[in-house]
Each structure stands twice: as structure tokens, then as C-alpha cells.
Write a protein that binds this DNA or RNA. Structure first.
Lengths: 203, 203, 203, 203
DNA sequence: GATGAATGAGGTTTCATTCAT
DNA sequence: AATGAATGAAACCTCATTCAT
């Protein structure tokens, strides 16, 4: 956790630092990211950095917290709360849409998350041992869908949960390569769901 | 490219070095991987390392080449050559199976590829600007499938190519988390294809 | 010398600062002692510290002055003034006793003095070039004792002055290791003097 | 322990490094001593330093080992082995003489030992919890002397052990202030022993 | 006077690469 | 070719001191 000194800073300055950090961490894996660069970018002295944060990792963890928090803020909480009022495919669409919107509006945060995912050691230090929640979430959604009768009972929720996660990653890939595609956003989502729906729906 | 001195080495020694390198790069991102460790592991002197390779990156690039080569060796070349004799879903199954087998038999190579994928700068240096070939390959396959009449014409090959890639990644994830799942291999592949087939087949 | 601002402070606050400083300097050699810790302990801001003292050394010097002053306050000034009324061994006993009482009642001050004694550079800056006064004092006492006829004339006052000093240090060592010995205080002093008296008295 | 690389160095270079280290540690307390200075003095690169030693503390511990070893080499091992052939005061003289000779010939090592003695934390790390062996040694010698009948039974060996240690320290002080005294060496030792003998001998 | 954030020089340590044998 | 010591450019982090309010 950042020290109090950080939170006592004017919002504007806090943001400058966070922005600088995101810039650095988005372009370099943790160990390659340099405190000096962040400080310089943010227009503060290196010494100040260490008055705000315990060390480089401290800032990094904090950033990850923000990322998670922000990501969660994108999902329609109303739908989550009343998920029994919605049909499986409506829920799925919502999940994909929220992931999509988040990625679209926070493109620089994406690579940070991805890099972390590939540094097992660091990942564990930050998120502990807990597993890829995404796949698990989809798995539960699928089980629920099967109970509802919307999903083909031949589908194995565990395997398919993983697959839906993989496709979600692909979706964010589109965003990261933005500009290279002339497809409009809705069309992408619709395509995915069209495909998934045909693949999963009970026949 | 490694220097001639490297290729003049007895095969056994070459292999020892490659194995050591794989070990190190599989557990550490490029910048974290240490030449010293590789040399030690391989039982050679650090100085020798630099007589075989230009520098750390040189070895890394070479390794990547091997990886790609090896990966390609897993796909059934007969099928590729005579792909017009096969039906779309047969081809797809073959691709997934080869990816699966490769991952299963070369588990240490997987994380290397993943880490590289997250170091954009390095990636570019090694593979240049050229795009995710996997997605493109699937895209072509899909287009071919549509011509053949096997694939629903409402499917957008570009988008779906990306999705099939994402699912392929998920598949390798299963292997990397091996032991945690009690699913038998064929079942996983079958499930995936069952789902994909329902999702894509012309109705 | 501390600035006026320090002396204008309420006595209570001055003491808090001094106490904090003693705590820090008693547990860390000068260069290891941290201004921040002292300020925090004393409940003042770091900035304030520099309004009271020129710098860290300033406080340290001041502390040393206090230490010396306090130490001197322990010797029976009446005896010093009328030292011709007393016999050599009475005087010696008084000196050892005062050293003993000082150490006993100010245990935290002892290590500060010891540490300083080992940082020649710093020592010189604070006490200048002037020599170990303790040894010199004992030397004079011994010379006086020889004149008096109490001390064996074969004794060399310079050498023996040094030795008496060394034994005084050993005495304070007993205090610093307090609790480890089950000897009662008077017994220690008596032993020492018994030994010294036998060693020195004119035969 | 220094790494093998250090011991593989030509003796001459090893010595240059040790000399440089002694110089630095003799004039600065551990935390104040700078690796850079040692390296520069020794005429090696900083990087080399770390190829020879784990870190600063590693070198320091090694130095301490040398010091102890050297110190022990000064005592007449023949006498120690056959100590029952000697009289208490002969043994004591030998101990003081060896301490004296060591100090005389290795004046720069003395302050290092003294500084360490005052950094409790560091001391513990290097010598563990074990107590001032010097005092204990003297204590045993005294007990032996009492059994022999040479020493006044009224003497408390524990207290007096400490005192003899204190005087030994004073003796080394003479050496460290060398040049300031016009006393010749033997005279100092003789004086001390004359005094001690009178103080301790059974009457 | 009081505060506590801001500063930056300086110290330790790492490691890719070069050099000398 | 083979070796492994030598090098030095970074990088992280600490903390006395100054500054601005």
C-alpha cells in the first residue's frame, strides 16, 4: 500500500504519478520498468517516489488494485444482482460487452495485466494463489445455463469455461491492435455471440 | 544467428546448451534470464558462450526459431499438402490436435512463447512486424470452409480466426496446468470441436 | 550549539527531544543514527529539528556536553575541593564509586560514550585533540599519593593511570551487562579496591 | 566466506585487497566503510569486488577471522599446552606479552576489533552470542592460580577476570597512541605485572 | 515557530560483455 | 577454442537537509 503521503498529495499530482507509472509498466515488464523513468515522467524527484511508496513493487501492486477495481466497475452491477431475471445469453453478452468497453477505454491497462499474468512469481505475490477467476465465473454461468435449460447438456462447463475465457482475451486483442481493423465494435461482439450461441444452445 | 563455432560443436554439447537455455528462458522473462546461469547449467564457461553467440539475444532468437520449427513439425504435413481432400472440420481437428500434442510434449517451450508475446519490443525484434500468423491461418481456413460450403456464410472469417486462436491458447493452458484436471485429453479436444462445429456449421 | 529556538522551548519539550536523541544514539553509531527517528520519537516534525539544531552533529555535540556535565556532577565535589584532607585510597574509592553510580543510574549514556570513543574522526571534532582526561586525572592522583607516601614509589604514575582507567571501563561493563551477575554492587567495588590497594600501597 | 575466485587470486593481489580493506575498516565503522573506496584503493573494479566476496559483510567477517587467527598465533602455544609447568605469574606475563606484541605489530587491526565490539548487532552476527572470552580466560587462570596457592584466596576470580581484561585493553591503547610515550615497551609490561602481582599474590 | 513534503547525492549490488591467457 | 576473471554502466533505495506554506 502506498504511504499516507501519497494519498495526501493533490489529486492532480497523484494522477500524474499514476499516469507515468502506467506508461512505464505498460511498455516494460515489471523488472524492466525503471523507477527513475516514472519519477522523471511524473516530474518528481526519485526521493519523493520513495516517500510515497514503499518500493517499486508497492506502486505496482497498487496499480493492479486500481486495474481490478476499474475493471469491476464496468460490469453492469444491476444485472449481476438480478441475474435470475436474465437469460444465459443476455448475461454472456453483458459480460463480453463490459470486458470490451473496459478494454476500449483503458487500452494502456491491458498490457500490464497481460504481462503480470506471465510472471508467475510476481502474480502470486500480488494475487496470491487464487486461480483464474474468469474461467471459473464462466463455468458457473454455464452450469446455471444448463439448469435453466438454455445450454446443451453435452457441453462440459469446465472446458467450455476456459474456452470462453480464451475468446474474451482474443476480444481484447482486437482493441490492442486497434486501428488495424475496420470492423465496427458491435459487429465484433455480435459475431462472437452468434457463433457462441450456435455452439452452445440446446438443440 | 549463432556463430559457426556453435555449429561446429559436437551435437551433444549443442544440445546441452540449448537445454540449459530453455530451462532459463522458460522460468524467466528475457531480461531476467541470466547468461551466467545458462553457461553454468550447460557446463561451459561464460566466455565460451560469447564465442558461440553474438549475445544473449542471439541465442534467444535462435531458440525461437527452433521453437517455430518444432511446432511446425507437429502438423501433419500430408494433410496440409492435400488439404483439398479434407473437409474443414477434419482440418481444424488436425490443427488443434497438433497444437495439443506439441504443447503436451514440449511443455517447457510454452511459457517462453507466452513471455515473448508480452514483450512487444522484443517480439518485434525477433519476428519483425508480421502479424499473428495463427489467426491469419485460421482465417484462410474459414474462408476455404465457406467456399466449400461447410461453414455458415454469416460467419466473419477475420473475427472468427481470432477466436479460434484464442481457444487454441486456452487449450495450451490446460497443458500448463496439467495435473489439476482429471479430464482425459481426447475428451477436451472433442468437446472443443463439438462446440465449434455447432457454432460454425452451415445450417 | 543548538539554536536559541531550542532553548526557548518549554523544558518538557526540550527533554522529550533529548530523551529521543539518547535513545537513538545509544543504539546506533553516529552515522547510523537517523534524524527522522529522533524527530518522530520526540513527537516533532523533521523541519522543526533543523530549527533547533544546526544539523545532526550539532545535537550530538550538545548531548556529549550534557553527558560530561552529568558525569562530573556525580563526583563528590566536596572531596575534590578538600582533597588534601583525604587519603589516596579514600579518594580513589570515591572516584570509582562516582563512576559506578553514574553508570548505574544512566545506563543508556554509556554506549554513546563508547561508540564515540571508537570514531576517532568524530571524537576529534567534538573533544578536539585533548587526551583521555581520565588517565591524566588518575596519574595526578597517583603522583599526589606518592608525595603523600601512600603509594609505592616504584609505581610509574603514567602507566598506572592508564591501568586504573582500564579498570574503570571494566566496571561500567559490569553495569551494561547487568542482570547477568549476581554480585552485589558494593562487593564489586570492594574487590577492586582491595586488589588495587594491595598492588599499589607502599610496602 | 569469500568466494573461490578470491582464493584463486595471486597472493599479491589478495593482499592488496586485504590491505585496502583493513585501511578502510580501521578508519570507518562498518556501515561507514565504502566498498568503492576499498576497490579503488586495491586497484580493482567494483564489479570484481563482488566476484570475490558475497558482499561487504562477507569481506568484513573474513577480516575478523584473520584477525582472530593472527591474534591467536601470537600466544606461545607451547606454554598453553604445558601450562601446569608454569607458575601463574609466568603465564599471565606471557598472555600480556603476546597481546602486546600483537598490538605492536598489527596496529591497524586494533581499531577494527574495537569498533566491532561496539556494534552489538554486527558483533552478534559474526561471533554469535558467545561472551567476552578474554574475561573468562582470565577468570579460569585465576581459579587455577588459587588452587596452585599463588593467588590470594580473597580475590573473586570473576570480578578480577574482568579487571585484567580492562588492563589488557589499556595496554593496547598505549600502542594505538604510539609515539606519544617515551616509555620503553618492557618497562610498561613490567610495571603492570609488578602492580598486578602485588595486588593478587597470597600474603 | 511548526510542519512535512521535496530533493538528490551517494552507497550497494547485479550482470552482460570483454579481455587476457 | 576455452576459460573465467575484469569491467563498469546501471538500477534500487536511503536519508540528511532544504523549502514552501
Amino acid at each position: 500500500m502506498p504511504k499516507d503521503t501519497f494519498f495526501n498529495l493533490p489529486k492532480e499530482k497523484q494522477e500524474r504519478i499514476i499516469e507515468a507509472a502506467i506508461d512505464e509498466f505498460a511498455t516494460h515488464p515489471f523488472h524492466q520498468a525503471r523507477v527513475t523513468v516514472i519519477a522523471e515522467q511524473a516530474g518528481i524527484a526519485v526521493g519523493s517516489f520513495y516517500q510515497y511508496f514503499e518500493d517499486k513493487k508497492d506502486l505496482y501492486k497498487y496499480l493492479m488494485g486500481l486495474l481490478v477495481e476499474k475493471k469491476l466497475s464496468y460490469i453492469n452491477s444491476d444485472m449481476v444482482k438480478n441475474k435470475d431475471k436474465y437469460d444465459f445469453f443476455q448475461l454472456l453478452r453483458e459480460v463480453y460487452l463490459s470486458g470490451f468497453r473496459f478494454a476500449k477505454e483503458n487500452p494502456r491497462l491491458l498490457p500490464i495485466g497481460l504481462m503480470l499474468a506471465n510472471d508467475k512469481e510476481l502474480y502470486r505475490e500480488i494475487f496470491g494463489e487464487y486461480e483464474d477467476q474468469s474461467a471459473e465465473f464462466f463455468q458457473q454461468l454455464l452450469e446455471y445455463g444448463q439448469v435453466q435449460g438454455a445450454i446443451d447438456p453435452a457441453i462440459n462447463p469446465k472446458i467450455m469455461g476456459k474456452m470462453l475465457t480464451g475468446m474474451l482475451y482474443s476480444l481484447t486483442d482486437f482493441i490492442m491492435e486497434d486501428g488495424k481493423f475496420d470492423l465496427d465494435d458491435m459487429k465484433i461482439i455480435d459475431q462472437m455471440l452468434y457463433f457462441i450461441e450456435n455452439g452452445l444452445r440446446k438443440k
